[in-house]
Structures are given as C-alpha cells and as structure tokens.
Lab assay of single mutants.
Amino acid sequence: MGFKLLSKLLVYLTASIMAIASPLAFSVDSSGEYPTVSEIPVGEVRLYQIADGVWSHIATQSFDGAVYPSNGLIVRDGDELLLIDTAWGAKNTAALLAEIEKQIGLPVTRAVSTHFHDDRVGGVDVLRAAGVATYASPSTRRLAEVEGNEIPTHSLEGLSSSGDAVRFGPVELFYPGAAHSTDNLIVYVPSASVLYGGCAIYELSRTSAGNVADADLAEWPTSIERIQQHYPEAQFVIPGHGLPGGLDLLKHTTNVVKAHTNRSVVE
C-alpha cells in the first residue's frame, strides 16, 4: 500500500471513529477524501466538511520552486461564519470567499490569524475590503508590521502568557507558548472536538522541520505538551499544512522538532 493511500485511509478511519463516538456532533463529509496538494491548482481553494458547521479550507501556493498546501478553518456561528487564517495570499483568499459563498452561503463576518507569517495573514486586506472584521493577538499584529505583512485590524486580548485561553464565538483560542513562531495560536472547536494546530503542528508525513527561522526550538516541545494537557479530548487535529489526523500529530511534531534540534547540535 502506497504512503499517500495509507495517509488518506488514516484520515478516513479517524473521521469514521469520530462519527461513531459522537453521532450528534459529527456529520463528516462523505463526498470524498481530504484534498491534497496535487489536486488543488494554485489560485483555487477546496472546502472539506469535518463536522456539522465545521470545515477546513485548503489552498496551495508556490514557494521556492515548489507547491505547498495550506489549511485553515471555518466555523459556523449562528447565521454567520468565523474564518481562521487566510488562504495564503490575496488571490487565494478572494477564491476562498467565493467558494464559501458557493458552498455554504453564509457571510464571513470575523477572521482570526493564528500567527504573523504570510500563509496566515496574506489576504487580510481582501477580507477587510469584503467587510470582514480581522483579528490577531497584539504580538501577531506587531510582528506582521515588522515583517511588512498585512496586519489584522483588531487585537485579541488575554493571550499574552503561555497557557492563556479565551473564548471567541464558537471557538476557544489558546496560546501554548512559542513553537513554530513566538505568537502562534491554537484554535479548538469544543462542539466538535476539532483542534486546529496551525503551523505549530505537523502532518504525519512530514519528517523535516522546514521553516524554523522564527521558531523557538527549545520551547516548542513544552508548548505541545500544554496543548495535549489542555485538549486531551480532541479527536480531529488539523495541521497548518497537509493531512489531518488525531492527537498523534502532536507527538510526531515533537519528535521531528527534537530530531532537528539534535542534528543542529551535532553539526
């Protein structure tokens, strides 16, 4: 069995187990497998329904001669939608809004960016022009300005110390501490036991640490421990890039980060 097929099978099995364990909360999309990078042309966006009122959005972007996937989250909030992270750029984010209108038909009224990198804030200006209120932590807003990236308009308070959590509509926002970046936030959907790890969490097929220019490698494993301790009931975990899975993604990420750190020390 090929690795790609095995990865998709694991996603399907995880979703099936969740649907059985929580039949009222989960209505997993039966329309197909989780979209992969090879299936999404740059400039297009796919939506994948995880649970009743919960979707991931998947886009792709060219970077350094390669094409990478990027995940975000959409959560229903009454007759409105909360968006977590842009679709990595203005063109993708405009396509995301169009796809949401086509498939869901509810307005996106608020959006949260989970850290300051372009795959999370690139497209904020498109959201703002569409009347979406954009939010991020003060740290993310400051770092985005320093980096020359787009800056969300509103500040999220109460997320300055490791372990801080605040309720934001249908989700809980959690600051686990520094990891992929010093400002990275985690998003949890309690009604569906869905954990969105953003770039602080890796997919299972990833074996290298990737972009760690703004990471705190020493603190990252401790931050992941905080996530595990705060959300032990999480059933569906979405990484910032690639295929979702279960809580095993947290341990896998820790292993990859520690291996990278150990290699760096040896070198």
Score class of each variant (00 low, 15 high):
Met1Thr: 02
Met1Gln: 04
Phe3Arg: 06
Lys4Arg: 05
Leu5Met: 13
Ser7Met: 02
Leu9Met: 03
Leu10Arg: 08
Val11Arg: 11
Ser16Cys: 05
Ser16Arg: 11
Ile17Arg: 04
Ala19Met: 04
Ile20Asp: 03
Ala21Leu: 08
Phe26Gln: 10
Ser30Gly: 07
Ser30Asp: 13
Ser31Arg: 07
Gly32His: 04
Ser38Ile: 14
Ile40Val: 07
Val45Lys: 14
Val45Phe: 06
Arg46His: 01
Tyr48Gly: 11
Ala51Thr: 02
Asp52Tyr: 01
Asp52Val: 07
Gly53Cys: 03
Trp55Arg: 07
Trp55Phe: 14
Trp55Lys: 09
Ile58Thr: 06
Thr60Met: 13
Phe63Gln: 04
Phe63Val: 05
Gly65Gln: 05
Gly65Thr: 03
Ala66Pro: 04
Pro69Val: 09
Ser70Ile: 11
Ile74Arg: 01
Val75Asp: 03
Arg76Gly: 07
Asp77Cys: 03
Gly78Asn: 14
Gly78Cys: 03
Asp79Val: 12
Asp79His: 07
Leu81Ala: 14
Thr86Gln: 00
Thr86Gly: 14
Lys91Pro: 11
Lys91Asp: 13
Asn92Pro: 13
Ala98Cys: 02
Ala98Arg: 09
Glu99Ala: 10
Lys102Cys: 08
Lys102Val: 12
Gly105Val: 07
Pro107Leu: 04
Ala111Ser: 06
Val112Met: 05
Val112Gln: 00
Val112Ile: 05
Thr114Ile: 00
His115Met: 00
Phe116Lys: 09
Asp118Gln: 01
Asp118Trp: 12
Asp118Cys: 08
Asp119Thr: 00
Arg120Glu: 08
Asp125Asn: 00
Leu127Asp: 01
Arg128Trp: 13
Gly131Val: 02
Val132Asn: 15
Val132Phe: 12
Ala133Ser: 02
Thr134Trp: 13
Tyr135Ala: 07
Tyr135Gly: 12
Pro138Arg: 15
Pro138Gln: 08
Pro138Leu: 06
Thr140Gly: 11
Thr140Pro: 02
Arg142Met: 13
Leu143Pro: 08
Ala144Asp: 09
Glu150Leu: 01
Leu156Ala: 03
Leu156His: 01
Glu157Trp: 14
Leu159Arg: 08
Ser162Leu: 08
Ala165Phe: 02
Ala165Arg: 10
Val166Asn: 14
Val166Tyr: 01
Arg167Ser: 10
Arg167Asn: 08
Gly169His: 02
Pro170Glu: 12
Ala178Thr: 12
Ala179Asp: 00
Ala179Pro: 02
His180Phe: 00
Leu185Gly: 02
Val187Thr: 12
Ser191Tyr: 05
Ala192Cys: 06
Ala192Val: 07
Leu195Thr: 09
Tyr196Arg: 02
Tyr196His: 02
Tyr196Leu: 08
Gly197Phe: 14
Gly197Ile: 14
Gly198Ser: 09
Cys199Gln: 01
Ser205Thr: 06
Arg206Asp: 12
Ala213Glu: 11
Ala213Asn: 14
Ala213Val: 11
Leu217Lys: 11
Glu219Ala: 06
Trp220Glu: 08
Pro221Asp: 13
Pro221Ala: 10
Thr222Ile: 08
Thr222Phe: 13
Ser223Met: 09
Arg226Gly: 10
Ile227Asp: 02
Gln229Gly: 10
His230Gly: 11
Tyr231Leu: 06
Pro232Trp: 08
Glu233Ile: 11
Ala234Phe: 01
Gln235Val: 06
Phe236Gly: 10
Phe236Trp: 05
Ile238Tyr: 05
Gly240Lys: 01
His241Ala: 01
Gly242Glu: 06
Pro244Tyr: 10
Gly245Trp: 09
Gly245Tyr: 15
Gly246Glu: 05
Gly246Cys: 09
Asp248Gln: 12
Leu249Ser: 12
Lys251Glu: 06
His252Trp: 06
Thr254Asn: 03
Val256Lys: 11
His260Met: 05
Asn262Asp: 11
Asn262Pro: 11
Arg263Gln: 09
Ser264Pro: 12
Val265Gln: 03
Val266Met: 06
Val266Lys: 14
Glu267Cys: 13
Glu267Leu: 03
Glu267Ser: 05
